[in-house]
């Protein structure tokens, strides 16, 4: 079998190792490691899971088990440059959250959890974003988009956005 090129960069591994002294065992690094890889790649493909497990001294199944529990880390293909979480929980729903989600998916021609063909935008339904004072709201990368209407949201999600964390 030909060895596949490594997905985890030295930098990612260094970032993971930098957190190791915080925890008494390496399994606790699972979520931080998944976040580090996800922040860099916008997804965590299965091979990255195998490599994370290798770095942490775990079975790949242990890392994969944790990963799948959260349904947060995509595995098939990367998320868009902008990952938008549209809140559908009660305070937002009372102010049009469901309609917002439907509108945005329709306008961008994708289903919930889908990514536009140009790889720019992923739209996902989210539960309460903890910003009910600004309902309906969207978390787009690190930006909280407050008091959205279908029109303002559509315009906001066309903008490029940094990803700091």
């Amino acid at each position: 079998m030909i060895a596949q090129p490594r997905i985890l960069t030295d930098e990612m591994i260094a970032q993971i190792e930098a957190l190791a002294p915080r925890y008494p065992n390496r399994r606790a690094l699972t979520l931080p490691a998944l976040h580090i890889v996800n922040a860099a790649l916008r997804y965590v493909p299965l091979q990255a899971v195998v490599e994370i497990a290798d770095v942490l001294g775990l079975a790949p199944a242990e890392v994969q088990d944790t990963l799948t529990f959260y349904q947060f880390f995509h595995q098939e293909k990367p998320c868009g440059n902008v990952r938008a979480f549209v809140c559908r929980s009660i305070s937002c729903a009372l102010r049009g959250g469901d309609e917002l989600l439907t509108h945005l998916c329709h306008k961008n021609g994708i289903d919930p959890y889908g990514t536009t063909p140009n790889g720019e935008l992923t739209i996902e339904p989210a539960e309460c974003l903890g910003a009910c004072d600004f309902a309906p709201c969207i978390l787009a990368n690190d930006d909280l988009l407050k008091n959205m209407t279908p029109e303002t949201a559509e315009a906001e999600l066309k903008k490029p956005r940094a990803r700091a964390t």
Partner: peptide, 11 residues
Amino acid sequence: DESEPGTFNNR
């Protein structure tokens, strides 16, 4: 973890 729908005081 503040995730109870309606809650944002910790934030």
